[in-house]
């Protein structure tokens, strides 16, 4: 069963075309990577998947719910993490997590916060204001917020940005374990190609709002005859088609 089904999705901002007629689906329990340079349409696509942005045309179904008509039923079972969207700075980490536990109607709030603190090593941060945390600590707290409701679909925008390699690896490992334990579906936008290779079962390559290639990381590496996704990314960004690659 597909957790996310996107059909002929298009977004215009006035005359500018941000996303052009893209279609894809994400099987439940898998991880889809969205790759593309700046302005490729990743953020616009994620914003439409989250219901923050209305598409110009096309449809989105998440967990069986049509996002145009029934987005709140889907949003209750989804969540989102991005280092570029902040949490209230003056509230402590615990207070922030409580707020979102209420918004997502999470039972046993305090127990859930303790679980997340155990899993993401947040105990020392719980009483500190969110605005006083380092960038890496904020990213971990944002991840805890995104897991507060045990989501079935998790949208991750650069989930390990600003994390040191050790912490980034810990977070990636934790995401893998969470997916294995819960069957959660991930949609991941990242510029960290090693992260995409490790976490994603499928990858969409976006350029100027359109899907220019797709496949498993292995298929893309074979097609472009490259050793890493970063080289594939550069080939696509520089308009080098597979047959042109030396």
């Amino acid at each position: 069963m597909d957790a996310i089904v996107v059909s002929r999705l298009t977004k215009h901002y006035g005359a500018a075309l941000a996303v052009s007629d893209i279609s894809f689906s994400v099987p439940a329990g898998s991880t889809l990577g969205l790759l593309g340079g700046n302005g490729a349409g990743k953020t616009t696509t994620i914003a439409m998947l989250l219901g923050l942005l209305l598409p110009t045309s096309g449809s989105i179904r998440i967990l069986g719910h049509d996002m145009a008509r029934d987005r709140f039923a889907a949003l209750a079972r989804m969540n989102f993490s991005s280092p570029y969207v902040a949490l209230p700075h003056r509230l402590s980490v615990t207070e922030n997590l409580r707020v979102y536990a209420h918004l997502y109607d999470v039972p046993n709030t305090e127990r859930r916060i303790r679980e997340l603190a155990d899993e993401l090593d947040l105990h020392e941060l719980l009483d500190r204001p969110a605005g006083e945390l380092s960038a890496g600590q904020k990213t971990r707290v944002a991840l805890a917020k995104s897991l507060i409701n045990r989501p079935d679909v998790l949208l991750l925008d650069e989930p390990t940005a600003s994390l040191d390699p050790d912490t980034g690896d810990m977070v990636r490992g934790w995401l893998e374990r969470y997916r294995a334990a819960t069957g959660c579906t991930f949609l991941l936008a990242s510029h960290n190609m090693a992260e995409v290779e490790r976490l994603c079962s499928d990858v969409l390559m976006l350029k100027r709002g359109a899907i220019v290639d797709r496949g498993t990381p292995g298929e893309l590496l074979d097609r472009y005859q490259r050793d890493g996704l970063e080289e594939v990314f550069l080939d696509i960004a520089r308009d080098r088609r597979p047959e042109m690659v030396p």
Binding site: L50, G51, L52, F72, L75, A76, M78, N79, F80, S82, V85, A86, L87, P88, H89, R90, Y100, L103, Y104, D105, K145
Partner: peptide, 17 residues
């Protein structure tokens, strides 16, 4: 306050109407 704390993105992707 939600704008100043750049929190609207989180608030409106929650089930909050």
């Amino acid at each position: 306050e939600e704008i100043w704390s750049r929190n609207l993105g989180h608030v409106f992707v929650s089930p909050l109407r």
